[in-house]
Computed example of a mutant assay.
Amino acid sequence: MRNFGNLAVLGFAIAIVNNSLIPDVWAFQSPPAVTVVDRQTKAQGADVVAELTRESENRETINKQTVSSFPSLFWEINNLPKISYSQWLEVLARRPDSDNTARETAAQPEDIARFDQIVQYAKQQNLPDRAIGQIIQAIGDNFLGKPYAEGLLDKSGAEKLIITLNKFDCVLFVETVLAISRGVAVKDYDYQNFVNRIEQQRYVNGKINGYCSRLHYFSEWINDNQKRQTVENITTQLGGVPMNKTLNFMSQHRSSYPQMVKDEATYQCIVNQEADLAKTTVNYIPTNRIKSVYSQLKPGDIVAVATDVKGLDVTHTGFVYRNADGNLGLIHASPAGAVTVAYDLQRYISRVESAIGIVVARAIDPR
């Protein structure tokens, strides 16, 4: 799961494999390869049984619908070079800037054109003068209606840095909007720097180095990005309570992850990462208490949907969205089909199967 897979931050999905329901898990991509392509991303992950909340175009009607997606949780899974976990860590420590896998940049013209359009919009609206959370909401608005797609990070055999501005899963949407917004805040409108920010957010220590370097579990994604002062986990400040569960969904559902099935080193690497994650406490705000913290939330805060699925931390993610009337909702890449806004945050979470509450992280202003 992006340590989620991108580790778990994905959308709920139902897959039936060998007559058993398998929940989707998220996963980020790894090798120092940058391939900018449309994202049809299935968060990989684990077998997650979940009914996804569907939203109508008017953002009001929510219908429950089953979405099937094979191994995906927030992140997608790709092949990891055959090295042990300890060797992998040693490489990162010894050669932080080295390319252990050929980095390839294959930006699609439509993605670059889309990026330029957003940059022009940011300049015209004087977004650099706004707070980082307001920038995030404004940039997110630019993607409303863009299609939801699964499994984009796992399309190729080797881990590659996938970039897309035309299709998203829930984690890719969060990563993309956050990366663009951080650039806008400091008036950095260079496309390659945007790509670099995606890599920094998606991989352990900010460097792509195979499948296992992707932050699969979203809790791990938050922890790793907090170390680099990209985001701050504010769940505890908001009165969060311990989740009290062992995060081992990926290792316990090894057969759902092709990279782990084929490579023992990759499997052991994930097991070790889960062991490290067990040393930290994951807190969440129970669903029935979400509305009580509305006054402390800000537009652009990252929201991850905490789940009661065994071994998994979260199953979906998006941003707090302030509606025109001031009410707080959620802008997200919805498994129902597109980037959309759920009008009320607590109501949305309460209608997501297996959801128990939310984890909240706040983007740190880079200025």
Results as ranks from 00 to 15, higher is better:
L215V: 08
K155G: 12
D190C: 08
L153T: 14
V305S: 00
V25R: 07
K227P: 01
S84E: 05
V282M: 14
L215G: 02
I83E: 05
S219E: 08
F249W: 00
V359W: 00
S213F: 04
R95G: 03
G45P: 09
L178H: 09
G300W: 00
E353P: 06
D301I: 03
F173R: 06
S69F: 13
V119I: 15
Q44H: 15
M1V: 01
R197Q: 14
G133D: 06
Q259L: 07
G239M: 04
Q44P: 10
P335L: 07
R202T: 06
T266I: 03
G157A: 15
E199G: 12
K82W: 00
T246G: 00
N78S: 14
Q134C: 04
S255L: 11
L92V: 11
I112M: 13
W221H: 10
R94M: 10
D308N: 14
A324G: 05
M1C: 01
D47I: 15
G311W: 07
E159N: 15
I358F: 00
I331F: 08
K310T: 08
Y189H: 03
V174P: 03
K245E: 00
G45Y: 12
V177C: 05
E57Y: 09
D365T: 12
L152I: 13
K207P: 01
L89K: 15
E199W: 07
K187A: 05
N142C: 14
V309Q: 10
G210R: 10
E90K: 14
D154W: 13
D188V: 09
L127E: 04
H332C: 08
E274M: 09
T230N: 13
T53E: 04
T287A: 00
N100E: 09
P335T: 15
A361T: 07
S255T: 13
S256A: 12
T281P: 10
F28P: 04
Q137F: 08
T266L: 04
V195S: 12
T66Q: 13
A102M: 07
A158M: 13
I270C: 02
Q29R: 10
R214S: 14
N327W: 02
S156T: 11
D313I: 08
I364F: 01
L165K: 09
Q273W: 12
I285H: 00
R130W: 07
F4C: 02
R2H: 02
F143I: 09
R351H: 05
A336K: 12
E76H: 11
G300I: 03
P32W: 00
R54I: 12
L73K: 14
V184N: 07
Y121Q: 11
I180S: 03
L297M: 06
V49L: 15
R362Y: 04
T317L: 05
S98I: 05
T246E: 02
A355D: 02
I112Y: 15
D111K: 15
V48M: 10
L247C: 01
Q259M: 08
G240T: 06
K160H: 13
A265V: 11
V303N: 01
Q117W: 02
P32R: 07
Y189A: 03
S20D: 04
W26C: 06
